[in-house]
Design a protein around this nucleic acid. Structure first.
Length: 493
DNA sequence: GTAGGGTTAG
């Protein structure tokens, strides 16, 4: 008699919707008594399937409901990605929650970024004197991470009596997600010292940290670690590895890793296409995109962002426009501001300032700093002071504190002898408290990071660096003259 | 019934 809930549980776990339903039908036919145990399993199964109404009806019709019934519904909704529904059920709960309930609702809070409710749950844990052991502590930490409250996540981590691989992974991935990759690697080091061995989940976050830092030597070491310890490659770890090599500038290794993978999905393709696009391999990106489509992988918004970037970096105006249309008409994807930004940047770089401005007027949202910056760069290239002044008014409406666009604007006015306009821009910057932070870049050689700041002359090879830089600039200028579709005609004929 | 990971314009 109790085989039914056990089988249903198995169906819920691997989400065998058809089989679960069929099984349910058989049991109704046989006339099995729907006691609490059976009903709870059914509620959980249908909520896991995302069948909101049906699972709720079953739940409402139950003559008696215990804490497991409530938790079944909440955790099922969480599994189905119905986080708001899960949180709503929790707020209407009529019995005392237990650890299982709290863990589930914390996941829900994290996924919808409901920091208020997450904190309230933490308060409840404190008030009811629940012991914050591994599972609850890890769930709390992850909730704070997902709500980007790193300090609170770290505090929970510090207060944990014991830490397992999930505790460490939570804090490491949290730091990576919140753009603190250096600190993430420090925690990764502490984790190894503490004797907890990382697994593929931990290591995919570590690859992401390396990608943000451009730490290719560290990334290579992690790659070796994966191979040495026989850690299984899945789509997640493979994708972060491809992304790491791409962001660290090794397109070759990114491609090599990509081809070694057995399980690829749209994320993997996006990492590769983005890497190729970033490094100016536009044709290769388009070629791989074709392969992706032929393989039956459906592109998403991120894919098209990579493709449009590829077109932008290679001056492929027609191709970019076609892909932009295809995105909307063939794949029913709605372009975001970043897609419009890419198209506008593409048009600007190719010298089509008018078309770019038309697109700005056409798009359904206000231009952001990125777009205004692209337009300004185009204005600078063709010395269009009037359009620049126009853009200034947009910029003031945005209330942005990005110094780059203001400096660019000021430079345009200066190079066109519009001293009063330039002074006005500087006054606006001063009034808004916008400061220009010195630029810096970081590279890693033999595992050691070197930072270069603007105006810093501490480097012993300063002169050699400048000599090489000058010759590179010359080369770029010459190549640019041949490449640029607008000027190319002039120089080729 | 209960915790962790990957891709996003410059």
């Amino acid at each position: 008699m109790y085989t039914f809930p056990v089988v249903l549980k198995a169906c819920s776990k691997v989400l065998k919707i058809g089989e679960g339903r069929q099984f349910h039908g058989v049991v109704v036919k046989v006339g099995l008594v729907f006691d609490l145990y059976v009903s709870n399993a059914l509620v959980h199964f249908y909520s896991c399937c995302g069948d909101c109404d049906y699972s709720r009806n079953l739940f409402d019709e139950m003559p008696v409901r215990d804490v497991v019934s409530w938790t079944s519904l909440i955790s099922g909704f969480v599994r189905a990605g119905l986080f708001r529904e899960a949180v709503m059920v929790f707020s209407k709960m009529e019995v005392e929650p237990n650890v299982g309930t709290l863990v589930s609702v914390l996941v829900g809070c994290g996924r919808i970024g409901d920091y208020g409710l997450g904190r309230a749950v933490h308060g409840l844990i404190f008030k009811r004197e629940f012991e914050v052991r591994l599972m609850l502590g890890n769930a709390l930490m992850d909730m704070y991470v997902k709500c980007t409250r790193l300090d609170e996540a770290k505090q929970v981590f510090c207060e944990l009596q014991e830490r397992d691989i999930i505790s460490w992974t939570c804090i490491i991935s949290g730091l990576v997600q919140c753009k603190h990759p250096k600190e993430a690697l420090e925690f990764f080091h502490d984790m190894q010292v503490s004797g907890v061995e990382p697994d593929k989940v931990t290591l995919s976050s570590v690859f992401s940290a390396c990608a943000s830092l451009g730490a290719i030597d560290y990334g290579r070491w992690v790659h070796e670690y994966v191979d040495r310890h026989g850690i299984e490659w899945d789509a997640h770890i493979g994708t972060s590895m491809v992304d790491m090599y791409a962001k660290c500038g090794s397109v070759e290794m990114a491609l090599c890793t990509f081809h070694r993978m057995h399980h690829r999905n749209v994320f993997t393709w996006n990492a590769l296409l983005g890497g190729l696009a970033m490094h100016g391999h536009g044709k290769e990106a388009l070629g791989h995109f074709k392969q992706m489509l032929n393989g039956g992988v459906r592109p998403n918004e991120v894919t098209f962002l990579a493709i449009l970037t590829a077109c932008c970096h290679n001056g492929l105006v027609d191709e970019g426009s076609q892909q932009f249309n295809q995105m909307i008409q063939v794949y029913n994807l709605i372009p975001g501001i970043e897609h419009y930004g890419c198209m506008i940047d593409l048009l600007c770089r190719a010298g089509f300032l008018d078309e770019a401005q038309k697109l700005v007027k056409f798009m359904p949202m206000q231009p952001d700093v990125f777009i205004l910056g692209a337009l300004l760069s185009a204005c600078k290239a063709c010395g269009d002071v009037e359009t620049s002044r126009n853009i200034l008014s947009h910029l003031l409406q945005l209330d942005s504190d990005d110094s780059g666009v203001y400096v660019l604007l000021s430079n345009i006015f200066v190079s066109n002898n519009r001293w009063e306009d330039a002074a006005m821009v500087r006054r606006v910057m001063k009034a808004k408290g916008i400061k220009k932070f010195p630029g810096s870049s970081v590279i890693e050689i033999d595992g050691k990071t070197h930072e270069f700041m603007v105006g810093n002359s501490n480097n012993p090879q300063q002169e050699d660096v400048h000599l090489l830089l000058n010759s590179l600039a010359k080369q770029v200028y010459l190549d640019g003259r041949i490449w640029n579709p607008v000027t190319a005609e002039k120089y080729n004929s």
